[in-house]
């Protein structure tokens, strides 16, 4: 009413237009084709059947949020396990399996036949640089087993660098020492001739045969060559021949 008073001409036009528009709407009798309804009915039935068939599944439907949380927890667990596993394999070892300190021999390069005794220049693990332990499989291999293993798996497997270095040493007549770092390249190593007692050899991880042990009890020392790695730790040993204490004394050492 107010609108009509304010805009009389417009009001008349507006009413006519509104009438025309509603007539347009009333005359428009278009309708959805019947096949849409039929298709919808088919889908409705299928949906109902599916719902009835999986009532339990729908009742306990997976919540995507919880599935995501579970997946994240699983990933964390796997990552933690892998981290722990890698640390146990390549982590720093400060003690040997029997709880004793790890023997480490440091020899000044260039010195000739330097006698190394127990507690002389050997450092305990607490004072030594952290040693990266060899892989258990490579650490426990003797030279013969290493060669056999290399022969068996030649061309079939990719030999890791540590094992490859150890094999190269064995081929040249060296005995790889345990607790050394087999990953270091051999080209940086230096050969140092030394005289070692049986006790010192045991500290290096070299166990003598019973006959040699008996000889060592008489104070025998052994001429050997130590291969010193780039980290200044002994990597491998090469024996010449056993010498008696008297022989050493004769040489004035």
């Amino acid at each position: 009413m107010k609108f009509e008073k304010r805009f009389p001409s417009e009001h008349g036009e507006e009413t006519g237009l509104a009438g025309a528009l509603s007539e347009l709407g009333r005359r428009d009798q278009r309708s959805t084709p019947e096949q849409v309804h039929l298709r919808l009915l088919d889908e409705f039935r299928e949906m109902q059947e599916a719902r009835q068939g999986s009532t339990v599944f729908h009742a306990r439907r997976w919540n995507p949020r919880w599935a995501g949380v579970a997946a994240a927890l699983l990933l964390c667990g796997v990552a933690g396990w892998l981290l722990f596993h890698s640390q146990s394999n390549t982590g720093v070892r400060t003690a040997s399996a029997d709880g004793q300190s790890i023997p480490a021999v440091q020899v000044a390069a260039g010195s000739e036949h330097m006698p190394i005794g127990e507690g002389h220049t050997a450092r305990t693990a607490q004072t030594a640089k952290p040693l990266i332990a060899a892989r258990p499989a490579a650490r426990n291999l003797t030279g013969h087993r290493l060669q056999k293993l290399a022969k068996t798996h030649r061309g079939h497997v990719t030999v890791p660098a540590a094992l490859r270095n150890s094999l190269a040493l064995v081929r040249k007549g060296w005995i790889p020492l345990p607790y050394s770092n087999p990953m270091l390249p051999l080209k940086d190593a230096a050969v140092v001739p030394v005289q070692l007692s049986a006790t010192a050899l045991g500290a290096l991880g070299v166990h003598l045969s019973p006959g040699m042990t008996a000889a060592s009890q008489r104070g025998a020392v052994y001429n050997a060559e130590l291969l010193i790695g780039a980290d200044n730790f002994a990597r491998a040993i090469h024996f010449d021949s056993p010498k008696s204490d008297s022989h050493t004394q004769e040489q004035g050492l």
Partner: peptide, 17 residues
């Protein structure tokens, strides 16, 4: 299903238009 059909019959044409 009857309820669905009833709703469809009542509203499909206006929606289509």
């Amino acid at each position: 299903e009857a309820a669905f059909t009833e709703i469809y019959r009542a509203h499909h044409a206006p929606l289509y238009r």
